[in-house]
Amino acid sequence: MNEQANTTIAFVGLGNMGSPMASNLLKAGFAVRVYDRVPALIEALRQEGAVGCSSLRDTVESANIVVTMLPAGEHVKAVILGTESDEGVLELISDDTFLIDCSTIDPDTARAVASVASEKGIEFVDAPVSGGVAGATAGTLTFIVGGTDSGFSKATAILSHMGKNVFHAGKAGDGQMAKICNNLLLGSVMAATCEALNLGVDNDLNPEVLSNIMLQSSGRNWVLELYNPCPGVLEHAPASHQYTPGFMCKLMSKDLGLGLDAAKLSNLQCPWER
């Protein structure tokens, strides 16, 4: 049997990003155990070959690697560190289990989780992602890892089956900081691109023609290339599918808030702050 088949991965959090990421691990040949608070999401992965679990304990106890993909820092703390009423991952696994958190959260929470894990002799890395739902489905995500050199090496062996780029940003929490910087820029570019295209459309320009002009000019950017906000310009963009959600606006709002919070902590004047 190959190495993947001998490696059991517990995947916790099966939302718009987590489900296709777990699916790609299955396609790579790993034994995958999945858990989410929404039973239908577990069932969908079970039909692809995953072991569907009804509790966090059942999901992680026999795993070599635990991957979490959760909405916010509070959820990461609750799942990994536990709460007053519920045990967390760190209380349920052996000390040779490796933890990868792919959520986008504040750096301080990532550092706090890494510190507690280290005290227990468990390796943890934060590895937030960029690339959206399309990238998660295609297995072309970019992972931004914060942790030790050994942790980065271990993480790369797993993350490379879900993405095409894996970067080592630095120590624990640095993956989150790099992701925050990226999304602060992305949110700004998205807003500016929408405004520019809307100005053109309001003045009777064809949005596809205008987009092609800007793609060959100094306004070229990722949104124009892959996520055009005008229906019919890009076949696979949400705008061409009745704006079917992938990366939700509330999550971008959360990420932008993390960026503003980081700027305040660094005593930086942030032009986005009112």
Rank of each mutant, 00 (worst) to 15 (best):
V116G: 10
G121R: 04
I122Y: 08
E123H: 08
E123N: 13
F124N: 00
V125K: 07
V125E: 04
D126N: 09
A127F: 02
A127M: 10
P128M: 08
V129S: 06
G131Q: 05
G132W: 01
V133G: 12
A134K: 11
A134S: 14
G135S: 09
G135Y: 00
G135Q: 01
A136I: 00
T137F: 02
T137M: 10
G139Q: 08
L141C: 05
T142V: 10
F143P: 10
F143C: 01
G146N: 13
D149R: 04
F152H: 04
F152A: 05
K154Y: 12
T156M: 09
T156A: 13
A157D: 15
S160Q: 14
S160K: 12
H161N: 15
G163S: 08
G163W: 03
N165R: 14
N165Q: 12
V166C: 12
F167C: 05
H168G: 07
K171Q: 14
K171Y: 03
A172V: 03
G173W: 06
G175V: 00
G175D: 13
G175F: 01
Q176R: 01
Q176G: 10
M177H: 00
A178P: 09
I180R: 06
I180L: 09
C181P: 11
N183K: 02
L184G: 13
L185S: 07
L186F: 14
G187I: 07
G187Y: 07
A191R: 02
C194H: 07
E195W: 06
E195C: 07
A196Q: 05
A196L: 07
L197D: 04
L197P: 12
N198T: 06
N198C: 09
L199R: 09
L199H: 11
G200R: 02
V201M: 13
D202Q: 15
N203P: 07
N203I: 06
N206A: 10
P207N: 10
P207Y: 00
L210Q: 04
N212W: 03
I213A: 11
I213V: 15
M214A: 04
S217W: 03
S217N: 11
S218C: 08
S218W: 08
G219R: 01
G219D: 00
R220T: 13
R220C: 06
N221R: 00
N221F: 05
W222E: 14
W222T: 11
V223W: 01
V223D: 05
E225D: 15
Y227T: 03
Y227V: 01
N228D: 09
P229V: 00
P229T: 06
P229H: 00
C230N: 01
P231Y: 11
G232M: 03
V233W: 08
V233R: 01
H236M: 14
A239W: 09
A239M: 02
A239L: 02
G246R: 04
G246V: 00
F247V: 04
C249Y: 08
K250M: 11
L251T: 10
G257V: 01
G257T: 00
L258Y: 08
G259C: 00
A262Q: 13
A262P: 12
